[in-house]
Simulated assay, not measured.
Amino acid sequence: MLSEFPILLGAGLVLLGIFVLGFIGFKTKFPSVILYILLGVVLAGLLTHNEILHFSGEVAIVLLFFLLGLEFSTKRLGSIAKKIWSSGILDVVLSLGVSMIIAFGFGLDWFSAFLIGGITYATSSSITAKLLDDKGRMANAETEFVLAILIFEDLIAPIVVAVLIALSAGDAFTSGDLLLLIGKIIGLGLIAIILGKTVFKHFEKFLLRIDDEDFKIALLVGIAVSFGGLALLLGLSEVLGAFLAGVMLAEIGKIERVESTVTPVKDLLLPTFFIYFGTTIDIGSGIPMPLLLVTLLIWSVIAKVLVGIIGGKLYGLSKRVSLRAGLSLCARGEFSVVMASVALGTIKVFGGIYIILSAFIGMLLFSYANKITIKIYGKPVKKKKNLKVPTV
């Protein structure tokens, strides 16, 4: 008679599965995020409510948002906001706001509609950045705009998650509660900025004195997790706290020293977050709300294309380049998973299926963006060089 399946063996098999899927994704240039979610769906019966997997996934997502925050010093936040704010707000209105109204129109309550709006909002930074690199489009005219939109979404996503966490508490959410929530977010942000300008002003010099890399890992991961935990204590989301911890340390200047220490830990643990999310998706009873799913998939594409066309024009891009930018923003991924993890039951299943399908559709549209643009606007006319023949 076999004894109970050992947790250690399960953890080892999950790590080996991560290696195999990561290798497949690398060789096929297919985003491994989707493969990890699918693995979780397949292993749902074995790994559901696995505390180790859940804990490692929580730490991983905290480190992901911590590293995102490192990219945003207060100075950079201001410069980005000035340049992309109009296109970014348009993105919030179309991708989040209209999707929320569509879901409400299908009979969902306001919280579920807002949750679905959050799931449909953000473009996947990891999938889009990987495709830009793989397709050799990093130097294209639209790339700066695409990356600016991704950065704006990186700033908005933690706030949306914080609001979702507060709303999911189950109590009636009044205007006073909203003001209190905004106050907490602003307060935590101010604490991060003040600490960054004072306590952590000379943090880089302190890091240089630490020779043992293990101690650096304990210190930096500890800061990220502690700030995430502080956010939870205040009734906010851990990802917002982690993001603000990154903003706090962004003031040190050379963030590469922090990134080089934390990134390997994040890379090891992050797949477990997507696998655990996959284990929570039960598709045994079929696809919930199929008509809403199809409607949102179509609107999600339209919304991002409009963000590209209108926002790109506001950014100073041509019609051709703006369309190509919009077609490159359609894939949803890690941020949508973070939003969907707040959901329960049918909405979580719905969110998981939406994420997988929208990622596939987004990848296809990205790959064919140039061909679609040529089909609509024709081939770009090459400018003739006006060569002057020297006269004697």
Rank of each mutant, 00 (worst) to 15 (best):
Met1Lys: 09
Leu2Trp: 13
Phe5Thr: 14
Phe5Met: 15
Phe19Ile: 14
Val20Trp: 09
Gly25Glu: 07
Ser32Tyr: 02
Ser32Gly: 06
Ile34Ser: 04
Leu38Glu: 00
Ala44Ile: 09
Gly45Gln: 06
Thr48Glu: 12
Glu51Val: 13
Glu51Ala: 12
His54Ile: 11
Ser56Asn: 09
Glu58Leu: 09
Ala60Arg: 01
Leu63Asn: 07
Leu64Gly: 00
Phe65Trp: 06
Phe65Val: 08
Phe65Tyr: 08
Phe66Leu: 10
Gly69Cys: 14
Thr74Asp: 09
Ser79Trp: 05
Lys83Cys: 06
Lys83Asp: 09
Ser86Lys: 15
Ser86Asp: 12
Ser87Met: 02
Gly97Met: 09
Val98Ser: 10
Ser99Phe: 02
Ile102Arg: 03
Ile102Pro: 02
Ile102Gly: 03
Ala103Trp: 02
Ala103Ser: 14
Gly107Asn: 10
Asp109Gly: 15
Phe111Trp: 11
Phe114Met: 15
Phe114Leu: 15
Leu115Trp: 05
Ile116Asp: 00
Tyr121Ser: 00
Ile127Ala: 07
Lys130Gly: 03
Lys135Ser: 12
Met138His: 09
Glu144Leu: 12
Phe145Val: 03
Phe145Ala: 01
Ile149Ser: 00
Glu153Asp: 13
Glu153Ala: 08
Pro158Arg: 00
Val160Gly: 00
Ile165Arg: 08
Ser168Leu: 04
Ala169His: 13
Ala169Tyr: 11
Gly170Val: 08
Asp177Ser: 12
Leu181Ala: 07
Lys184Gln: 07
Lys184Pro: 00
Ile185Asp: 00
Ile186Gln: 11
Gly187Trp: 11
Ile193Arg: 13
Ile193Ala: 15
His202Ala: 11
Glu204Leu: 15
Arg209His: 10
Arg209Val: 08
Val221Ser: 09
Ala224Ser: 14
Phe227Ser: 05
Phe227Met: 14
Phe227Trp: 10
Ala231Gln: 03
Leu233Gly: 14
Leu236Asp: 01
Gly246Ile: 05
Val247Cys: 08
Leu249Thr: 07
Ala250Met: 07
Glu251Lys: 11
Ile252Cys: 04
Glu256Asp: 15
Val258Cys: 11
Val258Gly: 08
Val258Ile: 15
Leu268Val: 13
Leu269Lys: 01
Thr272Lys: 08
Thr272Ser: 14
Phe273Tyr: 14
Phe274Met: 06
Phe274Thr: 02
Phe277Ala: 05
Gly278Trp: 00
Gly284Thr: 10
Val294Ile: 15
Ile302Ala: 08
Ile302Gly: 01
Ala303Ile: 01
Lys304Arg: 15
Val305Ala: 06
Leu306Gln: 04
Leu306Cys: 08
Leu306Tyr: 03
Ile309Cys: 05
Leu314Ser: 06
Gly316Ala: 03
Lys319Arg: 13
Arg324Tyr: 04
Ala325Thr: 03
Ala325Pro: 01
Gly326Arg: 01
Gly333Ser: 12
Gly333His: 07
Val337Met: 11
Gly345Pro: 02
Lys348Thr: 04
Phe350Val: 07
Phe350Gly: 04
Ile353Gly: 00
Ile356Lys: 06
Ile356Cys: 09
Ile356Met: 10
Ala359Trp: 00
Phe360Met: 10
Leu365Ala: 05
Ser367Val: 11
Ile374Ser: 03
Lys379Cys: 08
Pro380Gly: 10
Val381Arg: 10
Val381Asn: 07
Pro390Ile: 15
Thr391Met: 15
